[in-house]
Amino acid sequence: EPEARKIVEKLINNGLSPEDVKRWAEKNNNPEVKKAAEEYQKR
C-alpha cells in the first residue's frame, strides 16, 4: 500500500519512531499503516 508507506515516512520525518507510528496506527485503527511501519523497520 504506497499511500500507507507515504504516511509512515511522513510521520517518521516528523520525528516519530516506527514504534510510535505503529501505536498511532493502532489508535487510529489503521492496519495498513501499521503494516507499512513494520515493513519500514525491516529495511
Rank of each mutant, 00 (worst) to 15 (best):
K10V: 11
P31W: 10
K6A: 13
V8A: 06
A25K: 00
V8Y: 06
E3I: 11
R43W: 14
N28G: 03
I7Y: 04
G15C: 07
S17Q: 05
E1C: 14
G15Y: 02
W24L: 05
E26N: 00
L11N: 00
K22C: 11
K27W: 07
R23E: 13
K34W: 13
P2K: 15
R23V: 07
N13D: 10
L11Y: 04
K6S: 12
V33N: 01
N13K: 14
V8S: 01
W24Y: 03
P2R: 15
R5M: 15
K34G: 10
K6P: 01
V33R: 00
A25D: 02
P2N: 15
K35P: 00
K6Y: 07
S17F: 03
K10H: 14
E3M: 09
L16Q: 05
W24M: 06
R43M: 14
S17H: 07
E26F: 00
R43P: 08
L11F: 09
Y40G: 02
N14E: 15
N28E: 10
K27T: 11
V8Q: 01
Q41C: 11
E1I: 13
A37K: 01
K42T: 10
V8K: 00
W24F: 04
E1H: 12
A36V: 12
R23C: 09
N28D: 06
K10E: 14
E39Y: 02
E1M: 15
P2G: 14
K35H: 08
P18R: 02
V8P: 00
I12F: 06
P2M: 15
V21P: 00
S17P: 01
K6R: 14
N13S: 13
E3W: 05
V33E: 01
A25R: 00
Q41P: 06
N28V: 11
K34L: 14
E1S: 13
K27D: 14
E9R: 10
Y40D: 04
R5L: 11
S17Y: 02
R23Y: 08
K42N: 11
S17E: 04
R43I: 14
K6F: 07
G15S: 02
A25F: 02
E26R: 00
K10M: 14
K6L: 12
V33G: 02
A36C: 07
